[in-house]
């Protein structure tokens, strides 16, 4: 029997393997964050790494998001390669001053003298009944800021391979990981390919409509596309992956092929990331379109606790299917 070239792996395990590999590869890399060591990571992503690498490399930090993210920035300026974990994006407003006013700005303010090669990971997303203060999709806030590289890990492949690429960046990288996907299992290639962090990816090729998304939207759109295929609609699914600097070529080329587009995201609609995608399509591919571009986004409400209301707050597979069907078969 031929050895399989793929492995079945959870999103959590993929993230952990990427961390372990980064720590093995480069002595300058260290992980710091709340409960990353003795507790094993709030979501068990770093479980076992403290025992393996010791407390110099796996640093538990006090609840001082601004303090330790700032320290990560300083350590990066001084020649280290810190991976800073902010337990969840929900606490991500506290270090936002450090991220925007320092990490994203120092290269420019210093006239190109200072690099800040820090990697900041945040667990995020909606879907675990955690209510309004622990259910955030703030990718658009960070994607607004020049100087940052902003990554959204929407697949197991990226969970396994994106960190390595992020650590190669001379500039600060924010990585959004999705806690609702941690237990999901997928088949991925055994050998991690070099993924890069400059291009979006077509996750499913199709000819009828371009569904453009990121984060948890990727698996939802893939599921929707499979269902649509059963009804004879051939959807293309594009995973943006890199929210800044944005690769527009990939989705513009897709729109030029399908002439229809739907943008899907969990984040609140107004001034959201979908607005940016749609603007670019208007500016650069307007005459390719057969119909107005649509978007499915988060409903503009603090996320409620009850499951049925939470589910209604963000686009679900059925909403994506319905939207596409309405567009293509009015």
């Amino acid at each position: 029997m031929e050895a399989s070239n793929t492995i079945k792996i959870t999103y959590r395990e993929a993230l952990k393997q990427s961390l372990r590999e980064a720590l093995q590869k480069d002595d300058r890399v260290f992980l710091m964050g709340e409960d990353v060591g003795r507790y094993g990571g709030a979501f068990a992503v770093s479980k076992g790494l403290l025992e393996e690498f010791g407390e110099e490399r796996i640093m538990d930090v006090p609840l001082s998001e601004s303090g330790f993210v700032g320290a990560g920035i300083g350590a990066a300026m001084a020649g280290m390669k810190p991976i800073v974990e902010v337990m969840t994006i929900n606490f991500g407003l506290l270090p936002m001053d450090q991220i925007i006013n320092n990490a994203a700005t120092l290269l420019h303010m210093s006239g190109g003298q200072l690099n800040v090669p820090v990697v900041i990971r945040m667990g995020c997303g909606i879907g675990r009944q955690l209510a309004a203060q622990h259910s955030h999709s703030w990718e658009p806030f960070y994607a607004h800021v020049p100087g940052l590289v902003v990554l959204s890990v929407g697949t197991h492949e990226d969970a396994r391979g994106m960190l390595a690429a992020a650590l190669e960046s001379p500039d600060p990288v924010i990585i959004f990981e999705y806690t609702s996907m941690l237990n999901m299992e997928m088949e991925i290639a055994k050998d991690v390919p070099e993924l890069g962090i400059s291009k979006a990816k077509v996750r499913r090729e199709g000819n009828d409509i371009s569904i453009i998304t990121y984060g948890t939207g990727v698996h939802k759109c893939m599921e929707a596309a499979a269902e649509l295929a059963r009804g004879g609609i051939d959807a293309e699914v594009i995973d943006l992956r890199v929210l800044r600097p944005l690769d527009e070529e990939t989705f513009l080329a897709s729109v030029a092929k399908t002439h229809q587009a739907l943008v899907v995201e969990d984040a609140w609609c107004s001034v959201g990331f979908s607005a940016e995608i749609i603007s670019r399509i208007m500016e650069k591919a307007f005459y390719e379109l057969d119909a107005p571009v649509k978007r499915l986004c988060g409903v503009e409400v603090p996320i409620p606790y009850p499951l049925h209301l939470e589910e209604a707050s963000v686009p679900q597979v059925k909403d994506i299917v319905n939207s596409v069907q309405k567009t293509l078969k009015p």
Binding site: G74, A76, A78, M80, N102
Partner: peptide, 21 residues
């Protein structure tokens, strides 16, 4: 650095790097 106090955490991080190195 012109955001009052925002360079203090960075200073701690630079010192942490010195210690590690």
């Amino acid at each position: 650095n012109a955001i009052v106090c925002s360079h203090l955490p960075m200073a701690v991080g630079m010192a942490l790097a010195s210690k590690k190195q």
